[in-house]
Nucleic acid binder design. Structure first.
Ligand SMILES: [Mn+2]
Ligand SMILES: [Mn+2]
Ligand SMILES: [Mn+2]
Ligand SMILES: [Mn+2]
Lengths: 218, 218
DNA sequence: TTATTAATTTAGATAAGCCTAAAAATAAAA
DNA sequence: TTTTATTTTTAGGCTTATCTAAATTAATAA
């Protein structure tokens, strides 16, 4: 059994591991969890004892198979609850993360099984993030950043990379959401800004925006 | 703000206070929460500092207005979640308590407000217990114990006093639930057992059963 | 009313999860 | 390859929520 704090560490390390094959640094974990590096050292040593990750002094941490499974399951719960909050309780997509941070730690296999059924086995959360299955498997999806699109290319917005309230509300006011069709009208090489078409309206966006929107071009 | 542990103490004291106007004894709280009396002393002193209850050495504890409000709100959340689990996720009524014990501590006013709407403002939980409103008010309901009924009286089962899995499953196998009409066919003075009619079938029950079923005779 | 028993509190520990400050190891720069 | 800077760990503390054992107070019985 893993405590709430332990689950949060595993989840953080899971997200940080994503790209790098090399050990996740103690400092990176500390930044992500808003704690001190010394606290992280304590905890990763504990998690190493519990076989949830492998850890070598000064070399960082890597989740074990077991650790990955725990982390993926917490993420599964987080995202299923977010779907529930948006689909059933009619929350906005920028309001659900904090609550899901709490709900993801509720312990009951049966609860999640039934929630999944109740929500009709959703594949993605309200931010377009994929929901791992019961075994922690995430099926890969076709998507690229809007910034990677060329002039005149079009696609459907399938997710956000950032999901801060600020960014989500920015998108809301511009009528951009999951499912929205976006076409690149023009790209400015100098500052990587672009003009896009959303519905009837043209919009000029900075690279920061274009780097945080996932698009499916198929 | 109150911690999970503090909320559990307040809830326990709230339930224990129900009848007695006198202070709730330290030992009673310890028994209810399955802790040692010394732990209770520590905690009630802390809660007294936080103005959630009044406490005098050797005299027990009594919730303040504030303490009662916190407790009632936790109970409100517990019962709303139980309704959700049974009505929406199709859990049995004997399966929901443990999960609700966790869910009751999720912190979000908005969540509960919306859950209440989603469930269509239920007045009672799956065990027939009343759900306090946003102000912690519980409207009094007409009910008496089945054991208080006289021969030939009839009524509708509106709640259970005990709600252990064992008892709830006992009722399930005998087709007794909230809403079931029960008629007293006969009462045995010697051991307080009774014969009751449930649907087409007659059933002989002990005083222990009759003392744990709430009946509305109107 | 005194002696005994029961209830309650205090004292002192422990584990989890965090912190600050100092020491040690590694990485980067000169 | 030294020196310097950065990262990471260790040492020592703190808070919350527990516990056990001992002391104290209240209740009950003789
Ligand atoms: Mn989220
Ligand atoms: Mn999300
Ligand atoms: Mn319950
Ligand atoms: Mn209930």
């Amino acid at each position: 059994m893993f405590t709430l704090a332990e689950e949060n560490y595993l989840k953080a390390i899971y997200h940080l591991e994503k790209d790098s094959k090399v050990g996740v640094s103690t400092n990176a974990i500390a930044v992500k969890l808003n704690t001190q590096p010394s606290s992280v050292t304590d905890m990763v040593q504990k998690l190493a004892n519990k076989k949830a990750l492998s850890y070598q002094k000064y070399k960082g941490s890597l989740l074990t198979k077991e650790g990955k499974k725990i982390a993926a399951n917490v993420i599964r719960k987080h995202r299923l609850w977010e779907v529930f909050l948006v689909e059933k309780l009619k929350f906005q997509w920028d309001e659900v993360h904090e609550i899901a941070e709490q709900l993801e730690h509720i312990k009951s296999e049966e609860l999640i099984k039934r929630l999944d059924v109740f929500l009709d086995h959703p594949d993605f959360d309200p931010h377009g993030d994929p929901i791992p299955d019961e075994n922690g498997i995430i099926k890969p999806t076709e998507k690229k950043l809007l910034s990677e699109l060329q002039k005149d290319q079009r696609g459907i917005c399938v997710g956000v990379k950032e999901s801060s309230t600020q960014f989500l509300q920015y998108l809301d006011t511009r009528n951009i959401g999951i499912g929205t069709t976006i076409k690149v009208i023009d790209k400015e090489e100098f500052d990587d800004s672009m003009t896009i078409q959303v519905g009837e309206t043209k919009l000029h966006i900075t690279d920061k925006i274009a780097n945080n929107l996932y698009i499916n071009t198929h």
